[in-house]
Design a protein around this nucleic acid. Structure first.
Lengths: 190, 190, 190, 190
DNA sequence: TATGAATGAGTGTTCATTCAT
DNA sequence: CATGAATGAACACTCATTCAT
């Protein structure tokens, strides 16, 4: 086979897309993304058939990245509150360390170019994550709310905290703490 | 349709813009907005100098509308929790009753076409609202967090609840209740 | 109504399209056509929704033009041979006087961008023309062939003669004569 | 599929080009042709330097093929009419049996990508053919027209008949007969 | 020699904005 | 002031051709 499709190039395009979408929204020109990735305009389309395919792939990639970040180093056992805190901290650290990716995600989530199927697949990972937490709910630690509700509250609060962290990077720990307190109080049995 | 007067036309354009932006994002063509408003393409530009001006005005108008909805019928006195509950309920009712406007707002908030100045002005209203609440914080009902923090948490949770209500309109009361419990527990002194 | 769609501009675009398609085929850029017509690139699309729409319209327009040319000045009565000769002469004169349009037609006829429907409509006019000739066939002047056959032979011979005339304009009369003799002998009862 | 030898590959590309050009015109992508030929995109360019070179070669190849078909089995002597009939029949049989090649030819003939030189060379073969017929003209069988004229009339009528045959394959004999009668009457001394 | 990824000029079409009516 | 045709700069995507493998 001649010059195989380069995984590096594919990743460069996705990284560039995150940067550019974060800065200019989903309507950013593909030419700008290609340039940022250091490839020719046409090359982008050998890796992603259409702009929509690229955006959907970016969405899935970012979703998977967040999930992987949250699961990394998760303690196999331990008090429910501690495990939740782990998730929360990893989530916020990821978001705070990758501001471009987080802003890109904000754009993608509200865009109608992300298909229902992508959203479905993207959430599947989180559902697995929540399944791991089913026990703590069963153990009576969490209020009686469906996993989706808990996840949505967590995401909402995390987003709000990340906004503050983005503006005041020095107070990351503060917002992580304050946010978690709010979260725990909101979802845990008092 | 009778030819509406000037002010009516302006409002028709803003209403149409909300609908169209909700459905197709901020990159929706001005021609589509004009058509939805029942005016000619060019007429839109006699009321709003540019598309950006229209989007920013829409943002401010919606912000003001939410604020007005929240303040309407506010009890002059009463327990802090009840007054907060009033705000919360009015906010969620507005969002649930005006799904298009809420979805339009989601698009506008993440768009880079909304200027910092607009955001500043838009939040001023909320700051006034919070000023009214300063006393409850002073009275030791709320945790020691800046008003912005409380507002951000409230908005984040409200958004999350509205997503659920949009999907299950019949359970509006349930989500209003569950959301408020989470909110109160997150911001109030335990 | 503001500035109405200009019939002149529409015609200018069709004329330009004929010129450009004649010279560069149906794959000629729309930008080139617009420029030749003296309008902006975008203007072309206010008159014709797509390039295909323009090409199909051009096809129909040219077909109608040929037909009109053939019918103009047709003697109401007279010997069949003279009436056929009239058609033949008008056809060849049109083709010889409008070389660009004729060459454009050559391109359009073989292009798969001209729809079956356009071809159907385009031939309808000729069928009317042939209907007028039914009598001569009935009168035993023409061989027993369907009208379509006669029309196809006429077109084929005309095309061949026009090629010669294009190369030797001075011998137009010669080729008109020679071609008609071939035609008549081919279709008439000996 | 066993990897074909060089000459086979060249032929495969030409055959594929005929199919693809017949279906999609001369603007069909070279990638499509390569795929249809079962070779890589780049390989096409080791056999033909440019797309134009391929198209011109295809034109010449098809021209040569028709000519060969017409000359095959030609009776060395015999009545002029019989020999003409032989040519005519072989021409129409070739066109009717190779509809793709014939349609490809139609596209090539009107394309400005076929150079004057190619056309010149392509017609040379036919001129040879006509040279063989010079004697019948000399013998007073044909009207006093240049060979080119006769050839053009023959081609024009053949094209027209092939259109009919393509639509009604069952009536091939009928159209061969009717067409030849028209041809003979058009070119022969009455 | 064969392959197919890489390239970037070119294409049809869209759209915010202007301006003649 | 209202209208919608006119404009031309973008934009997503295609494709002939090159060249690293």
């Amino acid at each position: 086979m001649a010059r195989p499709l380069s995984e590096d190039k594919r990743n460069a395009i996705l990284e560039a897309a995150a940067e550019v979408v974060a800065a200019a929204g989903v309507s950013a020109p593909t030419a700008k993304i290609a340039k940022a990735a250091g490839v020719a305009e046409g090359t982008l389309f050998t890796y992603f058939a259409t702009k929509d395919a690229l955006l959907n792939q970016l969405y899935l990639t970012l979703k998977a990245e967040v999930e992987a970040a949250m699961l990394a180093g998760i303690p196999a056992s331990g008090a429910a509150r501690e495990r939740w805190r782990h998730f929360w901290d990893r989530y916020l650290d990821w978001g705070a360390d990758q501001p471009a990716k987080r802003r890109a995600m904000r754009q993608l989530v509200v865009s109608d170019r992300i298909t229902a199927q992508s959203r479905e697949i993207g959430n599947r990972g989180f559902r697995d994550l929540e399944a791991m937490m089913a026990e703590s709910r069963a153990a009576g630690v969490l209020r009686d709310q469906p996993a989706e509700f808990v996840a949505a509250v967590m995401e909402a609060l995390a987003e709000a905290m990340l906004e503050f962290i983005a503006r005041e990077p020095g107070r990351r720990q503060h917002y992580k703490q304050a946010g978690f307190e709010a979260l725990w109080c909101a979802v845990a049995v008092p």
